[in-house]
């Protein structure tokens, strides 16, 4: 019998070329990073079960899930608001069935959908990040409007993305996260990279820890 290997492939396998791009000289205004190896689960409260869903989340992550567009850090996971009475649970992928464990934790109170392969996580930071983002995002990312931990479900190139500013990331060190649909990732990467080139880009791959 033949042997089957199940190599994993990122949707940015070809588009993301690690290293420096654009800019003048050695300047790096924007860092672009794909974070691989994440587990992502969509949690939607069942009808009439919002309170129980919050309780279940608190038990699992020691933190209440956000009820407004925010991202909160909990135990081993970030909970990102994704709509009314729903949020996404982002964590590092582990061996074993993470999804089954979460399903059990929310049994009967929320519906879960595994989106670990449905989205690609791209991180944007650096002094030119906001200027680059302004070219493909209509969000107002001013500190007073979009502080650390703020989140939004929004559209880039007419495509829905989950967007949030890393909790605790301040001033020039603000880190912006984008979950983009897997099938769009290659195309959006080019849009994002093109928008960043004038500032000088360092592109890299990171693994969720």
């Amino acid at each position: 019998m033949a042997d089957f290997s199940w190599n994993v492939q990122s949707p940015l396998q070809q588009a993301l070329v690690p290293g420096r791009h654009g800019g003048a000289g050695t300047q790096v205004g924007v860092t672009l990073e794909e974070v691989r190896g994440v587990s992502l689960v969509q949690v939607m409260a069942r009808r009439g079960r919002v309170a129980e869903t919050i309780k279940a989340a608190k038990k699992l992550f020691s933190v209440e899930p956000p009820d407004t567009p925010r991202a909160v850090s909990g135990r081993n996971a970030t909970l990102i608001w994704s709509g009314p009475d729903q949020f996404m649970v982002l964590s590092a992928r582990q061996t074993g069935d993470q999804f089954a464990k979460l399903t059990a934790g929310f049994a009967g109170v929320a519906s879960l959908s595994d989106q670990s392969d449905g989205r690609c996580l791209i991180r944007i930071a650096g002094s030119g990040a906001r200027q680059a983002l302004a070219k493909f995002s209509s969000l107002d990312l001013h500190d007073s409007v979009f502080p650390a931990g703020a989140a939004a479900t929004t559209a880039v190139d007419h495509t829905a993305v989950n967007f949030w500013r890393e909790p605790g990331s301040v001033d020039e060190n603000a880190v912006f996260n984008m979950l983009v649909f897997t099938s769009f990732a290659d195309s959006l990467w080019h849009t994002i990279l093109d928008s960043c080139l004038e500032y000088g880009v360092q592109a890299s791959v990171a693994h969720a820890a």
Binding site: Q42, S116, R119, F181, T182
Partner: peptide, 8 residues
């Protein structure tokens, strides 16, 4: 509850 799983 509905979730698109097309890309998953």
């Amino acid at each position: 509850q509905l979730t698109s799983a097309t890309d998953q």
